[in-house]
Design a protein around this nucleic acid. Structure first.
Lengths: 187, 187
DNA sequence: CTTAAAACCAAACGATTGTTTAGATATAAG
DNA sequence: CTTATATCTAAACAATCGTTTGGTTTTAAG
């Protein structure tokens, strides 16, 4: 006995996510979100609580998109060369629609300071643990490597991904290619 | 025929720089700057024009501090192991007073989006060119390396520094040690 | 000692921030 | 068709943003 929503939450969140991705949390205002999401402020608050709620859902949406990107890697039995492919896939992903925006999670980790919201920190931790586990699983395909080496290399590749995120925003393709080549000389 | 300033611009800018370093550009408000710098808003505007002016000067101040840190490296004839030492020096530098804050320049590069101020972009470009040249000069000490290899490795190490900046903010010392060890297996 | 210039403080500026509310509109159940 | 309820638009909320201004205090030259 009520009116129907004229928007689909998953759809408008994806638009919000892209805005946050381009501009960061602080720079993105409710006014900008209103315009980009195509719905009224009232509807945004009804669906997501507040700005932080929109951001949290945007992070989760980004996480999902990245999991889709990683599904190829998860299913792969190509070992390290599979991870290297993922690095290249990520570069394309980060500039999907327009200019390079880096990784939303990495950008957020770099943006937030001391007094950051705990929910946001949790999403970040979940994300890094997730990526690290995927890398670790792939590395385990090589039975000649012992557990210590695998853990170290998983950490190394995870941090290298963080570097790649920043790099996509500043450096050119040749520099990125060269960076990735060097990174994978050690694993 | 006038009153004397009760503050030294270099001193208050260093305080502003530390605030920007901890919190980023957007999060840092004039109110916070007023408190941290210990002078009135009027004085801030009289000395630095506006918030952007304070930030530009803060970036320059940071640049100077980093050049001091690099002076050891510039004078070094230890080749690559000198650069590796610089990586460790930077980690200490980034958490000099308190918690890890990464590199202010890298943080800024990650924070600013499409419509960033040109002056800020210029400072960032100057900085990366500067660091890259120092790395390049050190690498040239090895006469067995040809020009192409040196340019590639300078780019690689530069991007690795960007990764290290993010990493200091998120990962623990063991992970950082391992990261640096792996990075320097290739140069 | 007077006087002009610069630095100080505090208050206020309009604009924009994130958030809430009031009233009109649409929809589905009874 | 009536009625209850959820969604819509648009206006307003207090708070804070970066910035400016007016008046007071300090200083140093004449």
């Amino acid at each position: 006995m009520a009116r129907k929503k004229e928007y689909i939450e998953e759809e408008v969140i994806e638009k919000a996510m892209n805005l946050f991705w381009r501009n960061g949390y602080q720079t993105t205002s409710m006014q900008m979100l209103e315009k980009e999401m195509g719905i009224n402020k009232f509807s945004i608050y009804a669906s997501f609580g507040n700005k932080n709620g929109v951001f949290i859902e945007s992070l989760k949406c980004y996480n999902q998109k990245l999991n889709q990107l990683m599904s190829k890697l998860k299913a792969s039995s190509n070992g390290i060369s599979g991870i290297k492919e993922y690095f290249y896939d990520f570069i394309e992903f980060s500039k999907e629609t327009e200019i390079a925006k880096g990784c939303l999670i990495t950008n957020t980790a770099n943006e937030i300071g001391e007094g950051a919201d705990q929910k946001i920190k949790d999403v970040l931790t979940n994300f890094t643990d997730n990526v690290r586990n995927v890398f670790s699983d792939i590395l385990k395909q090589d039975k000649t490597k012992n557990r210590d080496v695998i853990e170290h290399q998983a950490d190394y590749l995870l941090i290298a991904m963080f570097g790649l995120s920043s790099a996509t925003r500043i450096f050119n393709q040749t520099q990125l290619d060269n960076y990735i080549d060097n990174i994978f000389k050690n694993v």
